[in-house]
């Protein structure tokens, strides 16, 4: 079972709530995904047209709300957004995003680490979005991050696990859950991440913008489960299998 900050989740799929064609489809797709944690964003209310309230559309008892700090360009902005999220009633959970470069939306490692240090001290459960940098993962972990969220490839590119080799190191070294985020465009990408030993994946766009978000949510749920099952069962290995009949290989000296 996935455990983050002492809380147990039976689903290893975390989904976002953005970019859906309608609130009804969002609700249905999230339901179909089986996810127990959903990410949400914080924005100013348009006072002339308040529209639907997300907090009333999703059952707060069914889902853990994971507000993000999207839009923050430095640690100070992220900290302010985090405090607002808590004031808005989301609890202590926080997906920390600090993305100063509007073209790539790559996370800023220095500011992310700074913000993590501040927010952990303030009692937040911090899940930082980060580049797939193993050393940064170590620093974030030591700063008290409850999980790390390395990217598979650039946001919105649907390129899958381009950071595979670094992800492998992060997964091997981590003492907190590793949630792969960004770049996962297809269920097969999610399955690959899970087969590698990732603890969970976070998906939004691939579900929200598909022709049938509900079916796509089901597809991702199945892929995540399949990948995790394969990881736990132990994948077979490719390549030649060693046999006892190999020549002595220069070991004649042994007594």
């Amino acid at each position: 079972m996935l455990t983050i900050a002492g809380r147990i989740f039976s689903s290893r799929l975390i989904v976002g709530t953005g970019k859906f064609p309608s609130s009804a489809l969002m609700r249905a797709a999230i339901e179909a995904s089986g996810a127990e944690m959903v990410t949400v964003a914080l924005r100013r209310v348009d006072l002339n047209d308040p529209g639907d309230d997300l907090m009333t559309m999703l059952d707060r008892h069914q889902y853990v709300f994971l507000p993000n700090t999207s839009g923050a360009r430095n640690a100070d902005e992220a900290v302010r957004l985090a405090r607002l999220a808590r004031a808005a009633g989301a609890g202590e959970w926080l997906k920390l995003e600090v993305t100063p470069d509007p073209r790539t939306l790559l996370p800023d490692p220095v500011e992310t680490l700074k913000a993590t240090e501040v927010l952990v001290k303030e009692g937040f459960i911090v899940l930082p979005y980060m580049n797939a940098d193993p050393i940064l993962a170590q620093h974030l972990q030591e700063a008290g991050a409850a999980a790390v969220m390395p990217l598979g490839s650039l946001i919105g590119t649907n390129q899958g696990l381009l950071t595979r080799f670094q992800l492998e190191i992060i997964i091997a070294q981590a003492r907190v859950p590793v949630v792969v985020d960004a770049g996962l465009g297809a269920p097969s990408h999610a399955a690959q991440a899970m087969e590698m030993g990732a603890d969970a994946v976070l998906i939004n766009t691939a579900i929200a913008v598909s022709g049938d978000p509900v079916r796509m949510a089901q597809a991702f749920a199945a892929a995540v489960k399949a990948g995790r099952d394969a990881f736990e069962a132990g994948l077979g290995v490719s390549g030649p299998v060693a046999a006892a009949s190999s020549p002595q290989a220069g070991l004649d000296f042994l007594r």
């Binding site: 997300l54 808005a88 969220m149 960004a182 766009t205």
Partner: peptide
């Protein structure tokens, strides 16, 4: 803090930011 909303009087020239959750969240 939420508990103060009822007791808090709005005064001339105050600057308010009202924020709430919207759909969004994942980086992918």
């Amino acid at each position: 803090a939420r508990e103060t909303y009822e007791g808090m009087r709005l005064r001339e020239g105050m600057v308010l930011e009202v924020i709430r959750f919207v759909g969004g969240g994942a980086s992918c």
